[in-house]
């Protein structure tokens, strides 16, 4: 469990990072962000990058900001940065709730939001947030910058639309208006473990009924996704337990759960049903 040898490049700007990627990505060069997924994989020798392009010292990437109604999260914002509200209002609150489910404090102190998106573990929390909110991924390569919508970003287990030579420079999440409600629930074996089922619900209530419902799930299929057909069951209805049970059943039936030695497809379906119902209830709390 010692990594194979590699060359470490510390870059001082996004341009330098992109240039280094252009040069080394074909022969196994990779970005090193918080290192909380990459370094363990290197220790297990599941990843054997020959060059690490370390973006941690690039100035200006460690603070989220509000810009034109969007929360912009640059590449080096750590998970721990979300413990406190990054912006006042429902979005900041929701992010502060979600982050408490990611690993443990020492890991949150190094791991980054964007690294988690780039890594695209099917059981990670931030990717669910990204798809639930229809955020945007900003990628830069030597040829220029492009914006990838969340729905097109995740392509499979640890596979994304990001090209090998591209750096994920920032994530943009639409800010939520006052009155927006969120409910988050996940199930993990132990505190801090990757989730075995995740549900994130969001809506506004107007005249006693749910409007603009959003429901995204993770940890169950190879990629997180929104469930528009199920969201339609919520829209226009007053929130109540019977409705939530019905929606939870619908969610459980529309997925093809992954299996592993710890969780059968059938158990995972039940976990998703329970987390969905609880997320919906929490959105009312």
């Amino acid at each position: 469990m010692k990594p194979s040898s590699f060359t470490h490049h510390e870059v001082g700007s996004i341009d330098e990072a992109v240039a280094a990627l252009a040069r080394f990505s074909a022969e196994g060069g990779r970005i090193l962000a918080g290192g909380q997924s990459l370094v363990p994989m290197m220790a297990f020798r599941l990843a054997q990058p020959t060059h690490l392009i370390d973006i941690n010292r690039i100035p200006g990437l460690d603070r989220p900001r509000l810009e034109a109604g969007e929360l912009v999260i640059p590449a080096c914002v750590r998970h721990a940065g979300f413990h406190q509200q990054v912006i006042p209002g429902p979005l900041g609150d929701m992010l502060a709730t979600v982050v408490r489910h990611i690993a443990h404090v020492p890991i949150r102190n190094r791991g980054t939001f964007c690294g988690s998106i780039a890594h695209a573990d099917p059981s990670a929390e931030w990717p669910v947030v990204l798809v639930a909110l229809d955020g945007v991924v900003v990628a830069r390569g030597v040829a220029g910058t492009r914006e990838i919508p969340a729905a097109a970003f995740f392509q499979g287990i640890m596979t994304t639309a990001l090209a090998e030579h591209e750096m994920l420079t920032e994530i943009r999440l639409p800010n939520a208006a006052a009155g927006q409600r969120y409910g988050f629930c996940e199930h993990a074996r132990r505190a801090g473990d990757y989730a075995q089922a995740i549900a994130l619900a969001g809506w506004r209530i107007s005249e006693g009924v749910i409007r603009q419902a959003r429901l995204a799930i993770g940890g169950v299929e190879p990629t997180p996704r929104r469930l528009p057909a199920v969201e339609a069951l919520l829209d226009g209805h007053a929130p109540n337990d019977a409705l939530f049970s019905e929606v939870a059943d619908a969610v459980a039936h529309c997925v093809t759960p992954m299996e592993d030695p710890q969780v059968s497809a059938s158990l995972r379906r039940d976990l998703l049903r329970a987390t969905t119902r609880r997320a919906l209830q929490r959105a009312c709390a």
């Binding site: 132990r190 505190a191 801090g192 473990d193």
Partner: peptide
Amino acid sequence: ADFLMPTAHE
């Protein structure tokens, strides 16, 4: 990550 030892939380 596969052989699950309990932590102080458990």
